[in-house]
Amino acid sequence: MFDLVSKAKPVRPGKIYGAPGDGMSSHISLITALLIFALWLLVTEMGWVKPLFLPSPLAVWDKFMVAMTEGVSNSTLTQHTLASLSRVLGAFLLALVSAVPVGILMGVNRIMRGLFDPIIEFYRPLPPLAYLPLIIIWLGIGEFPKVFLIYLAIFAPMAIAARAGVRSVSTEQIHAAYAMGATRTQVISQVILKAAMPEIFTGMRIGIGVGWTTLVAAEMVAAHRGLGFMVLNAAEYLASDTVIMGIIVIGIFAFAFDLLLRYLEKILIPWKGKV
């Protein structure tokens, strides 16, 4: 018995007694997606649900091909997609260069926290449709109000995440940096900011998701192109195949951006979960 134990290979830390949920789950996600698609195909092919309420995958695919070539709602699917991408990405970039610095300042400065915290916490729970009429009254019905509405929805979670990341830095790390002669600026840039990066990326992922959910509300007002506009316009004519096709396209792009941010997080923050 002693020989068997002595010859056994050492177990890598976390291999067996690791954190709950450790391990790959991509194959499970793939199987889940295939099962949902198979169930959708079965229900529609057996006629258990009328096509008005749930069109078949083949009908949605046919509508996708029509949207790519002939177009729907006066534009092709590519034109709708480019219009929505410009709005969401524009709002996301604006939030990135403004919300993250504001969140960091809220974490390191009590005056900035006192100024921005009540404003953010007041409007954050409000649905975008609640302040959409006010944005229309103030800014009109052009392109900027649509981007601004999405920007407001993204700003709050990104700022809160950046602030939470700053506040999560341990006091010992800060004291150690000061003990080694670091200035306040160096402590903020080299210790606090780097330690807050995981939370900032989490806020970015939440923000881009919120941006896509706000897209439909933003394109309700005087829009002529966009995925949200296409879905709303199709709903008025009970074109459920176009509605589902638009939902799938929005979901694919939202998921793709989330995967991109996950990849960038692994590249830019290799120390996450290790310190």
Results as ranks from 00 to 15, higher is better:
residue 4 L to Q: 15
residue 7 K to V: 09
residue 10 P to M: 07
residue 14 G to W: 09
residue 20 P to H: 05
residue 30 L to C: 04
residue 32 T to Q: 06
residue 32 T to R: 07
residue 34 L to N: 09
residue 34 L to Y: 12
residue 48 W to P: 00
residue 56 S to A: 14
residue 62 D to M: 11
residue 63 K to H: 09
residue 63 K to Q: 09
residue 63 K to P: 00
residue 63 K to W: 01
residue 65 M to D: 05
residue 76 T to W: 02
residue 77 L to D: 01
residue 82 L to I: 15
residue 85 L to Y: 12
residue 86 S to L: 12
residue 86 S to I: 12
residue 91 A to W: 12
residue 96 L to N: 06
residue 103 G to Q: 04
residue 104 I to C: 06
residue 104 I to A: 06
residue 110 R to T: 13
residue 115 L to H: 07
residue 117 D to Q: 12
residue 122 F to L: 13
residue 123 Y to N: 03
residue 125 P to M: 03
residue 128 P to Q: 06
residue 130 A to R: 06
residue 131 Y to D: 02
residue 132 L to N: 05
residue 134 L to F: 10
residue 136 I to E: 01
residue 139 L to P: 00
residue 139 L to G: 01
residue 139 L to E: 05
residue 141 I to Q: 11
residue 142 G to C: 03
residue 147 V to L: 10
residue 149 L to D: 01
residue 150 I to C: 04
residue 155 F to I: 02
residue 155 F to R: 02
residue 157 P to C: 02
residue 162 A to C: 04
residue 164 A to D: 13
residue 170 S to A: 12
residue 171 T to R: 13
residue 171 T to C: 00
residue 173 Q to Y: 15
residue 173 Q to M: 14
residue 180 M to F: 13
residue 188 I to P: 01
residue 192 I to H: 03
residue 194 K to G: 01
residue 203 G to P: 01
residue 203 G to Q: 06
residue 207 G to K: 09
residue 207 G to C: 09
residue 208 I to R: 02
residue 209 G to M: 07
residue 209 G to Y: 08
residue 211 G to I: 07
residue 216 V to P: 00
residue 222 A to T: 13
residue 234 A to M: 08
residue 240 S to P: 00
residue 246 G to C: 08
residue 253 F to I: 15
residue 256 A to S: 14
residue 257 F to I: 10
residue 260 L to N: 09
residue 260 L to E: 07
residue 261 L to H: 06
residue 265 E to H: 10
residue 270 P to V: 04
residue 271 W to Y: 13
residue 274 K to A: 06
